[in-house]
């Protein structure tokens, strides 16, 4: 193999087409599920996906351990991970774009500012633009579909700063970025124990973040009246933080796999791609959070 040529082309494989099958049944299943029909096809798809991805990654890890992947292949993996993260950045960009658009243009227009003054006087009389939107246009006209929150997630003032959960979350995530960096450094110097310890701390911080966010959502739904249905503020708030939270879970999962691999001694100072890729992902998640913290919470 590797001796035959300087290139490595993998054997034919069933894994990708099975992955495609699982994605296909997830799409079909999700379509059925959101319409209130059977969740079984979705579940089958997810299960199959979990199995094939597990096989896929263990195959690649196995190939690597057997020395079949040379430096060039690793470079391809590195690039792939980089561009994948870029695509994730663009996904978030769509939602940030939506947030900026409604804050800067749509809500003021509805409130009668700027070019579209007639919008307010003919359709939404009584609605005034403010951000966060605490009273939706619908609600102002006596509707009940979109009812704004009693409280929002913005900065509560210095007096209550210690009760402000997003601040804690920022601290948690920033720390975790730092600990994952220490772990990386440790592995580069061959210090496995230090690597394992700091990686474990990182994962724990990630989980703590998720727990805090869970608490925040719970509060939003139970006491603040802030839900997905509370108009554009709830919409942008939950979509942005929700997708971020989902990515934190994903990143924490990736890192815990790397932790297991670290405990099994998979990594070498010059060979730790799986870990490095996960840690880039983690840094990306962290950077997105900073954006959220500023635009959704501090200025929100």
């Amino acid at each position: 193999m590797a001796s035959e040529s300087s290139y490595y082309v993998p054997e034919n494989s069933w894994i990708p087409v099975l992955t495609a099958t699982s994605l296909g049944s997830m799409a079909l299943g999700a379509g059925l599920f959101v319409q209130g029909k059977t969740p079984l096809i979705l579940l089958a798809g997810v299960t199959l996906l979990a199995c094939v991805l597990f096989t896929w990654f263990s195959t690649v890890i196995g190939e690597n351990m057997r020395g079949m992947t040379n430096a060039q292949v690793k470079r391809s993996f590195t690039m792939a991970m980089g561009w994948f993260i870029f695509s994730e950045v663009m996904f978030f960009a769509a939602f940030f774009g939506a947030l900026f658009y409604v804050r800067v243009l749509a809500v003021p227009w509805l409130g009668g500012e700027g070019e579209k003054a007639m919008t307010n006087s003919l359709l939404w009389q009584g609605f005034s633009a403010q951000w966060p939107v605490m009273q939706t246009p619908d609600q102002v006209l006596g509707g009940t579909k979109f009812v704004g929150p009693h409280e929002n997630m913005g900065f509560p003032g210095w007096g209550k700063v210690l009760e402000w959960l997003p601040l804690w979350n920022t601290i948690l995530l920033l720390t975790s970025s730092w600990t994952v960096h220490i772990a990386h450094h440790a592995m580069k110097h061959g210090n496995r124990t230090r690597f394992n310890v700091f990686l474990a701390i990182t994962v724990a911080l990630g989980l703590a973040f998720v727990a805090v966010q869970y608490r925040e959502y719970h509060e939003a739904y139970t006491t603040m009246g802030l839900t997905l249905k509370s108009g554009i503020y709830g919409t942008t708030f939950f979509m942005l933080t929700g997708f971020h939270g989902f990515h934190v879970c994903l990143g924490a999962f990736m890192l815990s796999i790397q932790l297991l691999r670290g405990l099994k001694g998979h990594f070498k100072p010059d060979d730790q791609f799986g870990f490095e890729a996960s840690s880039w992902y983690w840094h990306f998640v962290d950077v997105v959070w900073l954006g959220l913290f500023i635009f959704v919470y501090v200025l929100g």
Binding site: L110, K116, L123, P137
Partner: peptide
């Protein structure tokens, strides 16, 4: 003609 907005 956009629902919820008025264009001039």
């Amino acid at each position: 003609a956009i629902p919820g907005f008025v264009n001039e």
